[in-house]
Amino acid sequence: MNGTRGVLGIAVVAALCFMACNYTDGECFPREELYETSGVGGGVIVPTGVGVGGYGSVPFEPLSAPPEPDGPVCNIVSGGPCDDECQAGYDAASIECGKIEDSAQRRACQDTAHANYRDCQEKCEQEGSNRVCIRKYVKCQQYAPYWCRSGAGPTVCAECHDRCRSGDPPSSQCVQCGF
């Protein structure tokens, strides 16, 4: 038994040795700026991209846009299936943009693709928060005090759900009902 465990342990360690792993340390920038002096032009452009599978095709922040408040992100962070769809859409658009020979038109195309990607991401975030609100509503209807889930008109749970979806902070009543 101990022998089997030992062999298993060695196999796991060996398997780990044969896995490639890496991460980007610090900032990253578009390849075309490789030979530019740092600080000239748009400065460091950082991808805000998320999603696994977008190998080599990453959404860029447009030059005119302000930098991300959270700083550069140059590593893959999966945002779930919704974000992955956004990423796939962006990848397809980027390929099309890459075929445009005129640099100004190509840049405009990339900016549009990026804007679409950001819209898509925002929708994902909205959908995500909607799911959270629905989950809270279901929990409220099941476990909250009776006054939260009863009444002639819309229940307090339902009202709190509406507040949640619209992004308003929960009222004191909603807090008591689990929102």
Binding site: M19, A20, N22, F29, P30, R31, P47, S57, C74, S94
Partner: peptide
Amino acid sequence: SFSVYTMPACGATLCGRVVGLSP
């Protein structure tokens, strides 16, 4: 072989310093 690296590199679209392990 097994490699350890910290190096600036460029992929298809991005350049930056990459740290990692590779068999």
